[in-house]
Simulated assay, not measured.
Amino acid sequence: MSESLQKLEQNFANLIRAYRKKQIGKGPEKIKVTFTRNWVVAHMSGCLSPVESFITRSEEGRNMILHARTHMIKELYSELTPTDMEQLVGAKFIKLITDVDLEKDEVVSIFVFEQPIDGTEDMFSI
């Protein structure tokens, strides 16, 4: 991996952390970002706040946090286009695909852009 791509991935991770901290109140403790074609795959851990962790002790609470951390976060990214991410990668943001494992406090998010951002010419669309 080139040093410039590695730096770009780290900068993208920093944007994710800042965006989530600003919009949700807490950013992830750890983020690993990988660019693949027109996707940015982000594996995050340490995402839940202490209050969210407490709420997940009940089934109703788990369902509420799962909804907030998947459906609501996707809505947030569609309403507030992450222009700073678009500027960083030089491509238009299309959508976010995300899932959370509440027991492990891990999130995997795929940021989909309109064109390849990893230097490849081919595009795998979804």
Rank of each mutant, 00 (worst) to 15 (best):
K26D: 03
G27W: 08
G27A: 06
G27E: 06
G27M: 07
P28Y: 00
P28Q: 04
E29R: 03
E29G: 06
K30D: 11
I31E: 02
K32T: 15
K32H: 13
K32M: 11
K32G: 07
V33N: 14
V33C: 14
T34P: 01
T34A: 07
T34Q: 11
T34G: 00
F35G: 00
F35T: 07
T36A: 12
R37L: 13
R37G: 14
N38L: 03
N38R: 12
W39Y: 15
W39M: 14
V40T: 08
V40S: 11
V40R: 00
V41Y: 07
V41F: 07
A42T: 03
H43G: 04
H43Q: 14
H43M: 08
M44C: 15
M44T: 06
S45G: 15
S45R: 13
G46K: 07
G46F: 06
C47W: 00
C47T: 12
C47S: 08
C47Y: 02
C47I: 09
L48E: 05
S49P: 09
P50K: 07
P50D: 15
P50S: 12
P50C: 04
V51N: 05
V51W: 08
E52R: 10
E52L: 02
E52V: 03
E52Y: 06
S53E: 15
S53N: 13
S53I: 10
F54V: 08
F54H: 10
F54R: 11
I55T: 13
T56C: 14
R57Q: 12
R57L: 12
R57G: 09
R57A: 07
S58I: 05
E59R: 15
E59D: 14
E60H: 08
E60F: 09
E60Q: 06
E60R: 11
E60S: 11
G61M: 02
G61T: 08
R62H: 05
R62T: 03
N63S: 10
N63P: 01
N63H: 09
M64P: 01
M64L: 15
I65V: 15
I65Q: 06
L66N: 13
L66C: 09
H67M: 07
H67P: 00
H67D: 11
H67L: 05
H67N: 13
A68S: 12
A68K: 12
R69Q: 11
R69G: 00
T70E: 10
H71W: 02
H71E: 14
I73K: 05
I73F: 00
I73A: 02
E75S: 11
Y77K: 02
Y77S: 03
Y77W: 10
S78E: 15
S78H: 12
E79W: 00
E79G: 05
E79C: 00
E79T: 08
L80N: 15
L80I: 09
T81C: 09
T81H: 08
P82G: 02
P82S: 04
T83P: 01
T83L: 09
T83G: 00
D84L: 08
D84S: 10
D84I: 05
M85S: 01
M85C: 05
M85H: 05
M85N: 00
M85Y: 01
E86Q: 13
E86D: 04
E86A: 04
E86C: 01
E86S: 06
E86L: 01
Q87A: 10
Q87P: 01
L88H: 06
L88A: 09
L88E: 07
V89W: 05
G90S: 07
G90E: 01
A91Q: 10
A91N: 05
K92P: 00
K92H: 11
F93G: 01
F93Q: 03
I94A: 07
I94R: 13
